Amino acid sequence: MFISVVIPTYNRLPILQKCLIALENQVFSSDIKGYEVVLVDDGSTDGTSSWLRGNLTKFPHLKLLEQLHAGPGQGRNKGVENSLGDVIIFIDSDLVVTESFIDSHSRSLINTWNKRGDRFCFTYGAVINTSNFEYPTSEPHKLRDISFAYFATGNVAIDKNVLEAAGLFDPAFKLYGWEDLELGERLRRMNVELVKCPKAVGYHWHKALSIDQIPSLIRIEHERAKMALVFFRKHPSRRVRFIIQFTLFHRFIWETLTLFGLINTTNLKPLLQYLIRKGYPGLAMEILRLPLNLIGVRAIYREAYSQGLH
Rank of each mutant, 00 (worst) to 15 (best):
D159K: 05
N161M: 09
N161C: 03
V162I: 15
L163N: 02
L163E: 10
E164T: 03
E164V: 06
E164N: 05
E164P: 00
A165H: 06
A166Y: 07
G167N: 12
G167P: 05
L168T: 02
L168M: 11
L168H: 03
F169V: 01
F169E: 03
F169N: 06
D170Q: 12
D170R: 10
D170E: 09
D170G: 05
P171H: 10
P171F: 06
P171C: 08
A172W: 00
A172I: 05
A172L: 13
A172N: 12
K174D: 12
K174Q: 14
L175C: 04
L175D: 13
L175M: 12
Y176M: 10
Y176W: 15
Y176F: 15
G177P: 01
G177K: 03
G177T: 07
W178C: 00
W178A: 02
D180Y: 09
D180L: 07
L181K: 11
L181I: 12
E182V: 01
E182K: 04
E182M: 08
L183C: 06
G184S: 08
E185Q: 14
E185K: 04
E185P: 01
R186D: 08
R186E: 01
R188C: 04
R189E: 13
R189V: 02
M190N: 07
N191A: 13
N191C: 10
N191H: 13
V192E: 00
V192M: 03
V192Y: 02
E193V: 12
E193G: 00
E193S: 06
E193K: 13
V195G: 01
K196M: 12
K196T: 11
K196Y: 14
C197F: 11
C197G: 09
C197V: 09
C197R: 04
P198N: 09
P198H: 04
K199M: 07
K199Q: 14
K199L: 13
K199A: 14
A200S: 07
A200E: 05
A200T: 09
V201H: 01
G202F: 08
G202R: 03
G202V: 15
Y203Q: 04
Y203C: 02
H204D: 10
W205T: 02
H206M: 06
H206Y: 13
H206T: 07
H206A: 11
H206F: 13
K207W: 09
K207V: 03
A208L: 02
A208I: 07
L209Y: 05
S210C: 09
I211L: 15
I211T: 13
D212V: 10
P215V: 11
S216P: 01
S216M: 14
S216A: 13
L217F: 11
L217M: 14
I218Y: 04
I218E: 15
R219P: 00
I220C: 06
I220Y: 09
I220K: 12
E221A: 11
E221S: 08
H222Y: 15
H222G: 09
R224G: 05
R224C: 14
A225T: 11
A225N: 05
A225Q: 10
K226H: 15
K226E: 15
K226L: 15
M227I: 00
M227Y: 02
M227L: 03
M227V: 01
M227C: 12
A228M: 08
A228F: 10
A228V: 08
L229E: 11
L229P: 04
L229W: 09
V230L: 10
V230S: 04
V230I: 14
